[in-house]
């Protein structure tokens, strides 16, 4: 009983036949080989699978693939490329905010969702936003610094584009 869906993933329209109980996470990873989003718990408690759905962070394990029909998904693979990294990717590198890297894609996507909503968050707002993204390695300190640095660069970039 496959369900036909059309979903825009990282700017490209994908026409897929998904199973009714297939999660968005599984669809991205198994069908599209977009393995940046990770399965850490499969119950929305760790944040390793966070992607943007219509520009907002969601746990991809808590969304059915079928629910994404007609919507737009952005994953870490849709962010930047070497030489043209997204400010968040650059800042995570520059602030040594990455260790094992398993939480990193979800962490960056959550931070991106926050910064799209709130370009100048306080540290408390950043902490709150990423508190659903567990990281066992870093102690979060360098991640918090990286998000602030990226916010600053994104604000500067936005100003630079204004006439």
């Amino acid at each position: 009983m496959a369900i036909p869906i059309r979903v825009k993933v990282n700017g490209q329209v994908e026409a897929l036949e998904v199973a009714p109980d297939e999660s968005l996470l599984s669809m991205l990873r198994e069908r599209l080989d977009l393995t940046g989003a990770k399965e850490g718990c499969n119950e929305g408690e760790c944040g390793a699978c966070v992607v943007l759905l219509d520009g907002k962070a969601v746990n991809a394990c808590l969304v059915l693939a079928a629910e994404a029909d007609g919507h737009e998904v952005t994953t870490i693979e849709g962010l930047g490329r070497p030489g043209a990294l997204h400010p968040l990717q650059k800042a995570f590198l520059a602030h040594q905010a990455v260790q094992c890297g398993f939480c990193t894609p979800g962490m960056i996507m959550t931070a991106l969702s926050l910064l799209l909503e709130n370009p100048a968050p306080t540290e408390e707002e950043v902490r709150t936003a990423i508190s659903g993204n567990l990281c066992r390695c870093t102690g979060y300190r360098q991640i918090l610094d990286a998000v602030q640095a990226a916010a600053q660069e994104m604000r500067a970039g936005a100003q630079g584009r204004r006439p």
Partner: peptide
């Protein structure tokens, strides 16, 4: 010195493959 992580790029781009990512 504060040398940046040499495996950072693959981890911030989603390129890094962990066990369950390997087909």
């Amino acid at each position: 010195r504060d040398v940046l992580r040499v495996d950072g790029l693959e981890k911030v781009t989603g390129a890094a493959r962990y066990l369950a990512d390997v087909k």
